[in-house]
C-alpha cells in the first residue's frame, strides 16, 4: 500500500474532522441546559450524595444527553443540510459521516446508562435510557416529521434531566421531581414556537411540520399565549411545594409577569408588524425564555442551599 492509496481513503485536509467536530455532535449548548437542570435536581433532593458521585452522575447524564444529540444529528442530517441554523453541523458540513455519528451516539448511550447505573442506581439509569429512547425514537424518528405537536411531546425529552438528577440522589421519583419535569416540559413549546416565528423560512424549507407551517402563524401566536399562561400557573404553584420558597416565588412572579407580557405582545402582533421590526418582540421573547428557565432552576438551587444551611428553618 502506498501513501497515495492511503490518501484516497481519508478525507481531504479541509474536511478532516477535528476533535471539536466530534464534540459538536453532542450539542454542547443543549448539554449546558441538561447539566444545569440535572445538577439542580440532584442538589434539591433531600438525600445527600458524595461530591464525586454527584460529579460523575452529572457527567454521565450530560454524556447521555450528548449521545442522543449525536443520534439526532445522524437521523436528521437531511433536514440539517437545508436549514440555515443547522447546516454548519458536522454531518452536513462533511466533517463527520452519518455512520460515525451513529457509532458515537450508540456507544455513548450504552456507556452513559451503564455507568450512571453503576455510580448511582438503576432507577436513574433507567430514566436516562428512557430519555435517550424518547428523544431519538419518539421525537426525532417519529413525531418531528409527523405532527405539528412535535415540540410539545418531544419537549419531554429535555425535561427529564432534573428528574434523573433527583433519582440519582434518592433512587426514586417524587412530586417535586415531577414538578421540575413539568416546568421544562411546559416551557419548551413557547420557547421553540417563538424561534419558529422568526426562523420561519428554515422550517418551511426543511418540510418539518412545525405549527407555523401546518396551522399558520396566527395559530402559533395563540398557542404561545395559552402555553405561557399555563406555564405561569404551574411555575408559581411549584413555589408552594418543598422545592420552592420566598426566593423562588419572588423570582417566578417577576419572570412570569415578564414572560406573560412578552407572550401578549406576540399575540397582539400580526405578520406585517413583525416584519416591520424584523421580529423584535419574538426575538426578545426567545431570549427571555432562556433566562426564564435558568433563573427558575437557579432559584430552586438557592432554595435548596438555604434549606441545607437551615436559613428558613
Amino acid at each position: 500500500m502506498t501513501d497515495t492509496s492511503i490518501n484516497t481513503t481519508v478525507r481531504s485536509a479541509e474536511n478532516d474532522a477535528q476533535f471539536s467536530d466530534f464534540f459538536a455532535l453532542l450539542k454542547p449548548r443543549v448539554m449546558t441546559l441538561v447539566v444545569f437542570t440535572a445538577f439542580v435536581g440532584l442538589l434539591a433532593a433531600p438525600t445527600p450524595v458524595h461530591p464525586f458521585i454527584a460529579f460523575c452522575a452529572i457527567l454521565f447524564i450530560a454524556i447521555g444527553g450528548g449521545a442522543s444529540g449525536a443520534l439526532n444529528m445522524w437521523w436528521d442530517a437531511d433536514i440539517d443540510a437545508v436549514m440555515k441554523r443547522t447546516q454548519h453541523r458536522p454531518i452536513p458540513a462533511g466533517k463527520v459521516t452519518g455512520e460515525e455519528a451513529f457509532a458515537i451516539g450508540m456507544a455513548l448511550s450504552v456507556f452513559s446508562v451503564v455507568f450512571l447505573g453503576l455510580a448511582t442506581n438503576w432507577v436513574a439509569a433507567g430514566l436516562l435510557a428512557f430519555t435517550i429512547f424518547f428523544y431519538v425514537v419518539i421525537y426525532t424518528m417519529w413525531l418531528k416529521r409527523w405532527t405539528p405537536q412535535n415540540i410539545v411531546i418531544g419537549g419531554a425529552a429535555g425535561a427529564f434531566p432534573p428528574m434523573i438528577g433527583w433519582a440519582a440522589a434518592t433512587g426514586g421519583v417524587s412530586v417535586e421531581s415531577v414538578l421540575m419535569f413539568c416546568l421544562t416540559f411546559m416551557w419548551t413549546p413557547p420557547h421553540f414556537w417563538a424561534l419558529a416565528l422568526f426562523m420561519r423560512k428554515d422550517y418551511d424549507n426543511a418540510d418539518v411540520p412545525m405549527l407555523t407551517v401546518t396551522h399558520g402563524r396566527r395559530a402559533t401566536r395563540n398557542h404561545i399565549l395559552v402555553y405561557t399562561v399555563l406555564l405561569a400557573i404551574l411555575a408559581v404553584a411549584a413555589g408552594f411545594t418543598s422545592i420552592g420558597g420566598p426566593v423562588y416565588i419572588a423570582t417566578s412572579v417577576v419572570l412570569n409577569a415578564m414572560f406573560l407580557r412578552g407572550a401578549l405582545q406576540i399575540w397582539r402582533r400580526d405578520e406585517d408588524m413583525s416584519e416591520e421590526d424584523n421580529f423584535l418582540a419574538e426575538r426578545k421573547f426567545f431570549k427571555l425564555s432562556l433566562l426564564y428557565l435558568f433563573a427558575h432552576f437557579g432559584a430552586i438551587l438557592i432554595e435548596a442551599g438555604l434549606d441545607k444551611f437551615g436559613v428558613w428553618a
Partner: peptide, 14 residues
C-alpha cells in the same frame, strides 16, 4: 506524513 499533523489534535483529544 501530513495525516499525522492533521490528526494530532484529534489524537490528543482521544
Amino acid at each position: 506524513h501530513d495525516l499525522h499533523e492533521r490528526r494530532f489534535g484529534r489524537n490528543v483529544g482521544v
